[in-house]
Design a protein around this nucleic acid. Sequence first.
DNA 1: TAACCTGTCGTACTAAGTACGGCGGGACTG
DNA 2: CAGTCCCGCCGTACTTAGTACGACAGGTTA
Lengths: 218, 218
Amino acid sequence: MVRTPLTRERVLRGAMAVADAGGLTGLTIRSLAQELGVKPMSVYHHVANKDEILDGIVDLVFDEIELPVVGGEWRAEMRRRALSARAALARHTWAIGLLESRTSPGPATLAHHDATLGTLRAGGFSVELTAHAYALLDSYVYGFALQEAGLPFSGPDDVADMAGAIVEQFATGQYPHLVELAAEHVMKPGYDFGDEFEFGLDLILDALAGRLTTGWAP
Amino acid sequence: MVRTPLTRERVLRGAMAVADAGGLTGLTIRSLAQELGVKPMSVYHHVANKDEILDGIVDLVFDEIELPVVGGEWRAEMRRRALSARAALARHTWAIGLLESRTSPGPATLAHHDATLGTLRAGGFSVELTAHAYALLDSYVYGFALQEAGLPFSGPDDVADMAGAIVEQFATGQYPHLVELAAEHVMKPGYDFGDEFEFGLDLILDALAGRLTTGWAP
DNA sequence: TAACCTGTCGTACTAAGTACGGCGGGACTG
DNA sequence: CAGTCCCGCCGTACTTAGTACGACAGGTTA
């Protein structure tokens, strides 16, 4: 087997692949080394430690998110960015938990933030409203991804099963509203939690547009 | 020393205290045992394993969130709940990362969800709109807490320092909009990222009220 | 050819989760 | 009141994971 020489790039790509396959707990130096066809200590010639790997793969995830076009129509750009971000975080759910603990953003992360801010500014948002809008949009995207990742199911089929279990388990009336939601909404054929995303996103974008045109001031 | 007998309750409270003090990585069976004045293996007579501890302390966090009053004015109740939830997650930032991986909700978590759903339903929301509103509100709260936890600073003072560092480091123009935001907004005296929370929250609540009164339909 | 550098690896130490079995003191029985 | 028993605590030790340290090989340069 011809062995491509190890590089920082290959280490990070490999780490991402291992995390995608086995989650964060499945990502160990040893499992990563195996993935790369190498012995554990070889990895350390390309990254300082595991933390650097974690920082690196978070940045790889940001690299997968479509950059908004500064100067484009802000609403469409923000919508596209949000959908892309949610998709990336859904592909790499392990990244969500890392967002909390990683405090040194990589170049892709910084570029992403910069393009987003720039798009809002070019769209007519004041500096202050830009800050508000950005915090709001990112909170929604991250939070939605977090909820999606935490759900004990992953597709429309599992959802119905889970909802059925809830209905049965709590039929006694301990959690009536939870049961109602499960029985009358979630178990309906075709329900997909992921569809909730666009409702909230459009609601937020509509409301931001309102704040923008009315020249909202603090 | 009179030693209160160990109980599951004391184990979980102790685990929460250790996590508050040293983060998730600081919470080990050994550190927990020391906190409790006990040897490591004693802990295992009250919980099956560490995962059960993690599930347990997440539920303790939910227990700290004020329950909305079913039948109360939905907007005020949702607002109070959101502020309370954000405060709880800010006190226990380690809980945010756990939300993603813990899939077995405890009683406090279930009660919390049920009361929230009930408040919306009693406030006139259809089952479907309730689902949308709930996903939206929770996403925002969790996401905001996630962002807050990920910030490399924790108070208004640190923020200005950090913003100053950004301005200096990227003065070359690589990330112009990031620099602009830092220089013209974040570094202003009195800025506190936490204040962004209420802007987004009220925007969302306003927009939900609009969807409610116009009898929004899918 | 000899010195050297770069990337790989073997070994081993430390920290952490936890299985297994011992043990002591209070409770319960006769 | 004594014997029995069980519950909760602990000592020991095995496993997995991060990573420090130094050896070694193969190509490169002087």
